[in-house]
Design a protein around this nucleic acid. Sequence first.
DNA 1: CAAAAACCGTTGCATTTGCAACAGCGAGGC
DNA 2: GCCTCGCTGTTGCAAATGCAACGGTTTTTG
Lengths: 219, 219
Amino acid sequence: MQKYFSVLRETPLFAATTDEELAAMLHCLATAPRAFAKGDVLLLAGEPAQAMGIVCEGTVHIVRDSLLGDRTLVAALGPGEVFAETLVCAQEAHSPVNVLAATACVALFLHPQKLLAPCTSACPQHTRLIGSMLRLLAQKNLYLQQKMDIMAQKTTRDKLLAFFDAQLLRVGGDTFTLPFTREALADYLGVNRSAMSRELSALRAEGILTVQGRQVTKG
Amino acid sequence: MQKYFSVLRETPLFAATTDEELAAMLHCLATAPRAFAKGDVLLLAGEPAQAMGIVCEGTVHIVRDSLLGDRTLVAALGPGEVFAETLVCAQEAHSPVNVLAATACVALFLHPQKLLAPCTSACPQHTRLIGSMLRLLAQKNLYLQQKMDIMAQKTTRDKLLAFFDAQLLRVGGDTFTLPFTREALADYLGVNRSAMSRELSALRAEGILTVQGRQVTKG
DNA sequence: CAAAAACCGTTGCATTTGCAACAGCGAGGC
DNA sequence: GCCTCGCTGTTGCAAATGCAACGGTTTTTG
């Protein structure tokens, strides 16, 4: 268990905790880390989530199966990343997604019910953890709302500009680096790759943007 | 204050609490209800949210101003509805939206920091409230994710079908009632109203749906 | 009750988009 | 060095979409 402490500290939940604090908290709400083989199912769509998970080793895929039977990859999580936290907190009866082991991996499961249950309290880490949990959910919320603002734009051009504006606002300059390959960006915006490429060229031709590889400059 | 107890119990935060519990909790984390005149600003975009709010009387509008200066109405909240809960929990420095009094109204402000701060605990409502708060945020999260799934569809037809499927899944039958006017539905899906109307007619003509007013039946 | 406003479906048209196919390019493996 | 493979930009074309406008219906309001 001890071997994963450095990974756990990378999560927003356990940032800046001492070994002792971590040990105490995990003792309180975690089960032993579990190992999975590639392809194993960590959480099945349709089932309730019993606990939230933290990836310790390997890669985990969040996968959605459509009614028509095709799979789409929602997210790929590496060490230190968290999954199913929304489902447990919402007390949802049915998970809308599958969680699969993309490689051999190790995950730690936490039971947030225990966060609240006996109000063991008095222990300050306990309340700090609750605060982190609230912040984690709220930030994910803001992220989704921001993405919605972008996706709500009607044209590809407007989606691109909305996305760029958001990025520029974040870094506070007039240049930023795309965190995506073009293909992934088109996917993120929910548009066709070639149509997006066309629009990017147009924006460049009109002098609205300068694009060099992943460097984007406004003006 | 007492006069708002029935309204407060309509929020997911204070569902099923006795008068005594409510009084104790509010004493612990609320300030006195404040009245606003129509047009007053409850929260200004760009400012940090100091507290979350609950509408007691009247109507409150959540409004987003675009870079170009045009306003879009994000939500209209009535008595018992909550706002700014995401912002305080995320500890965000800047609100992306304005909160305005659409009519003369009364709002109650809560300081969730006090939820955690001294871990007054021992009081069981306290921990239950934390649980409600977590659930509130998580459910909003799920709602947004579901909406994203719909908006991520490329064509208007696919958006409609995705939305209908989600609704049918909720009610568990093959018929449901639209919670929207057509205009609002188009807005919700982020598409042009007339284009949506066209597509709706096509779906009906192809026998995929039956639509009568706000009644939608599959098959 | 009558006027006004809101809502809905329809249509023509210009524009945008998705889709499929192709070619250029660079990284990495053999 | 050569080959493969993945990423990227481009283009032609059919289909989808936004937009504006119109008429009919329902709802609201004075």
